[in-house]
Amino acid sequence: MLVAVVVGSGIAAQQLSPNDVGLQLLQNSTATVFGLTVLIVIFGPISGAHFNPAVSLADWFLGRRMGGGLSLKELGTCVASQTLGAIGGSVLANAMFDVGTSISSKERVTPGHLLGEIVATAGLVLLIFSLAATKRSSLAAPAVGAYIGAAYWFTSSTSFANPAVTAGRIFSDTFAGIAPGSAPAFVAAQLIGAAAGVGLLVLLFPTDSRAAQDVVVPQTADKRA
């Protein structure tokens, strides 16, 4: 559903404002802010709102340090589910707008774009885990939505910040797409950003970071994403 929101709103923006890329980005980012916030509210109690392999990987890493978080098996299940779900969301969005599923030809790799992905992902990971570390995970839905909305505009890459979303967006040759050749570099930058975010967490919250596990948001059942 997250990728359906991103790709679907991108297609709608492209159709509604074909000659104004800035307006397209505004429409796309606004829909993503609201859609992501709602999805975190819906799926947080079920899975901890693990939509992002970079976040799940950080959760697993912090859990190894603290004796909690995702297990390696759960991490693998999460990443596979996130990636398949992202591809399915892209296919769904294409079908809703009758554009057909096709491989994107939109090349995005430049040094600036990759730096943007590092910054965007580092900030996202720091935000999510700092909320968990300071027992404010109830704010995750609006905070994460707001951050991604802002990062659409202050990063040159428009803040993919999610390896699964990157994979899903390959399958739509539209405003929100990314060419297969650009995706590996984006994913690598996102993983570097995730590592930087974890490093900043430990630096800024040296004591509280011990509690930063089982995120994105608290679950009502005793289970992990």
Rank of each mutant, 00 (worst) to 15 (best):
residue 107 E to F: 11
residue 222 D to G: 14
residue 168 G to R: 02
residue 223 K to W: 07
residue 119 V to F: 11
residue 140 A to K: 01
residue 42 I to S: 03
residue 135 K to Q: 15
residue 142 P to M: 12
residue 126 L to S: 09
residue 177 G to H: 05
residue 176 A to W: 00
residue 102 S to R: 15
residue 84 L to S: 04
residue 159 S to P: 04
residue 215 V to Y: 03
residue 172 S to I: 13
residue 80 A to G: 02
residue 182 S to M: 05
residue 90 S to C: 09
residue 114 L to K: 04
residue 202 V to R: 11
residue 1 M to N: 06
residue 210 R to L: 14
residue 194 A to D: 04
residue 91 V to S: 06
residue 81 S to R: 04
residue 78 C to Q: 03
residue 10 G to I: 05
residue 167 A to G: 08
residue 159 S to T: 15
residue 95 A to H: 12
residue 148 I to M: 03
residue 140 A to L: 06
residue 164 A to W: 00
residue 194 A to S: 04
residue 117 E to V: 10
residue 187 V to L: 06
residue 111 P to A: 08
residue 21 V to M: 12
residue 106 K to T: 14
residue 194 A to T: 04
residue 218 P to F: 03
residue 196 A to I: 06
residue 142 P to R: 08
residue 66 M to R: 15
residue 12 A to V: 13
residue 4 A to N: 07
residue 196 A to G: 15
residue 37 T to K: 02
residue 225 A to G: 07
residue 145 G to T: 11
residue 69 G to V: 00
residue 115 L to Q: 06
residue 80 A to E: 03
residue 223 K to H: 12
residue 205 F to K: 15
residue 94 N to R: 11
residue 209 S to E: 10
residue 210 R to D: 13
residue 94 N to T: 10
residue 208 D to V: 12
residue 109 V to Y: 06
residue 202 V to W: 06
residue 7 V to Q: 07
residue 88 G to M: 01
residue 49 A to L: 01
residue 126 L to W: 08
residue 147 Y to W: 09
residue 81 S to A: 08
residue 190 Q to N: 07
residue 146 A to H: 05
residue 29 S to F: 05
residue 36 L to H: 02
residue 174 T to A: 08
residue 75 L to P: 01
residue 190 Q to A: 08
residue 171 F to Q: 07
residue 27 Q to T: 12
residue 50 H to E: 13
